[in-house]
């Protein structure tokens, strides 16, 4: 595969003609450009995250925003302020709750649908398949959905984070494809042994589908962790239901009366307690950002492994 393993044999006919010199030169130029480009990609993705981190642990009085690679005067005061702030702790709890309850409930319900639509001679199979797929392509839109959720009591409620995401159509496609790729004989022999459909689903199919279930639930968990759209629409006026992402939105977008003020308050409270406890609202914001990224980074190795598998099952292969 690699260029190193296979030595390039010399062409027997000619010696080092002008063409060879030209090829060597443009290949060297390309290789140089390639490494520059790859290092640039590495830098432009890694540096912003690193910068946010060093900003969050810097002493704000010593820190002036410029390009730099190391923090100025380490201070963990911002994190102390953040982790003793009720609004933040509540938001963190809401985020954890929605990213665990949501994917679990959704995984079970979606897997059962996927098993149904992958059962080859189920009467109405095509109908059910399209019944779910259609909702991916066509939705009622923002306002009719809002009014329905309101009449169902989902507005200003935690359950608006969970209930609408239970049926995961994209997850269903991945799971269905995976189940269909399993050998059919396993199901048939289980039938002969007298197992019913639920036993087969629970005891045979589900254990075999662990990789795809992991991919779908991990992806759903990331999605839940990152979401704030539903809070904007349904729960904006209910601060105790704000997840971490919305807590951060308020700081970033400076929405009055929200946690943008919380950042200023945390900074003011720190300032009132003496010179050793210095934090600025921006440092508080950076600390919240870091705390928001950490859970994703911890799960990242698993996400990457399973997500790539899932992505490749569901997408085109060349």
């Amino acid at each position: 595969m690699g260029a190193k393993t296979l030595a390039r044999p010399k062409r027997p006919k000619q010696g080092k003609g002008a063409y060879d010199i030209y090829r060597t030169a443009i290949n060297a130029a390309f290789t140089g450009f390639m490494w520059l480009f790859l290092l640039f990609v590495l830098f432009i993705t890694a540096y912003p995250l690193w910068y946010v981190f060093i900003y969050s642990i810097s002493d704000p009085t010593a820190f002036s925003p410029t390009f730099q690679f190391l923090p100025n005067g380490i201070s963990l005061e911002a994190y102390l302020r953040v982790f003793t702030n009720d609004g933040f702790l509540n938001a963190f709890f809401i985020s954890v709750a929605r990213s665990t309850i949501g994917p679990i409930v959704s995984g079970v319900v979606t897997m059962m649908i996927a098993y149904g639509v992958s059962t080859r001679d189920l009467p109405g199979r095509r109908f059910f398949n399209w019944y779910f797929l259609f909702t991916m392509y066509f939705s009622a839109g923002l306002i009719p959905t809002f009014l329905l959720y309101q009449s169902l009591g989902l507005v200003n409620s935690f359950w608006v984070y969970i209930v609408p995401s239970i049926v995961n159509v994209f997850g269903m496609i991945l799971m269905r494809t995976y189940i269909e790729s399993l050998p059919a004989e396993m199901k048939e022999s289980a039938y002969i042994d007298g197992a019913n459909d639920f036993t087969i689903f629970y005891k045979i199919i589900t254990p075999l589908c662990i990789p795809v279930i992991a991919a779908v639930t991990l992806f759903a968990a990331v999605h839940q962790w990152n979401a704030y759209f539903d809070t904007v629409i349904y729960n904006a006026t209910e601060p105790r239901l704000h997840p971490l992402q919305y807590f951060l939105v308020q700081m970033v977008a400076g929405i009055a009366g929200g946690s943008g003020d919380a950042a200023a308050q945390m900074a003011a409270a720190a300032a009132a307690q003496g010179a050793t406890a210095r934090v600025s609202p921006t440092v508080v914001r950076m600390a919240v950002t870091v705390v928001t990224i950490v859970p994703i980074s911890l799960l990242y190795p698993f996400i990457q492994r399973y997500f790539m598998k899932g992505l490749l099952v569901g997408s085109v292969k060349g």
Partner: peptide, 23 residues
Amino acid sequence: IIYLMMLPGFLLTLVLAYFPMGG
């Protein structure tokens, strides 16, 4: 049994996705 297993997803989709289309 399979229809029963699909029922929760079916009803949720009916109420949450198809119902509001009337709106």
